[in-house]
Simulated scan of single mutants.
Amino acid sequence: MIEPLTVYTLPNCMQCTMTTRALDAANLPYTVIDLTTDARATDLIHQFGYTTAPIVITRAVTWSGFQPDRIAKIAALRDHPALTDK
């Protein structure tokens, strides 16, 4: 089972919108955090060294920008036998 991802976004960010739409289409759970309203999140993102949104954080990987290939890989892993309880 894939744990929810965290997507740090900015208002009116096209890449943020494209990322959340791709996550929705892949049926991947995620939480959105608006960087304009959460100063602690902004500090965390700066510590990671990112300067552009969106920033997607998973347990295993973190990236910024719209990365449909990474979303597809996570979606493909979702039902992998080693990750399921079956």
Rank of each mutant, 00 (worst) to 15 (best):
M1C: 14
E3W: 11
P4R: 00
P4V: 05
P4S: 06
P4L: 06
L5G: 02
T6Q: 03
T6D: 00
V7W: 02
Y8M: 01
L10E: 13
P11L: 08
N12K: 15
M14W: 14
M14Q: 11
C16G: 07
C16D: 04
T19A: 01
T20I: 10
R21E: 09
R21W: 06
A22N: 01
L23T: 01
L23G: 04
L23H: 05
D24H: 08
D24V: 02
A25F: 03
A25Q: 03
N27M: 12
N27G: 03
P29I: 06
Y30Q: 05
V32T: 15
V32Y: 12
D34H: 14
D34M: 09
L35I: 11
T36R: 15
T36S: 13
T37V: 07
R40A: 15
R40Q: 12
A41K: 08
A41H: 09
T42C: 14
D43I: 04
D43V: 11
L44V: 12
L44A: 09
I45Y: 02
H46I: 12
G49A: 04
Y50H: 13
Y50E: 05
Y50C: 08
I55Y: 02
I57D: 00
T58W: 00
T58E: 00
R59I: 07
R59N: 09
A60T: 14
V61N: 06
V61E: 12
T62E: 10
W63M: 01
W63R: 01
W63P: 06
S64L: 07
F66D: 06
D69G: 11
D69R: 14
R70N: 07
I71S: 02
I71W: 01
I71V: 04
A72P: 00
K73R: 14
A75S: 07
A75I: 01
A76Q: 11
R78A: 13
R78S: 15
D79F: 15
H80C: 02
H80S: 07
P81V: 07
P81C: 03
P81S: 05
A82G: 07
A82E: 13
A82K: 10
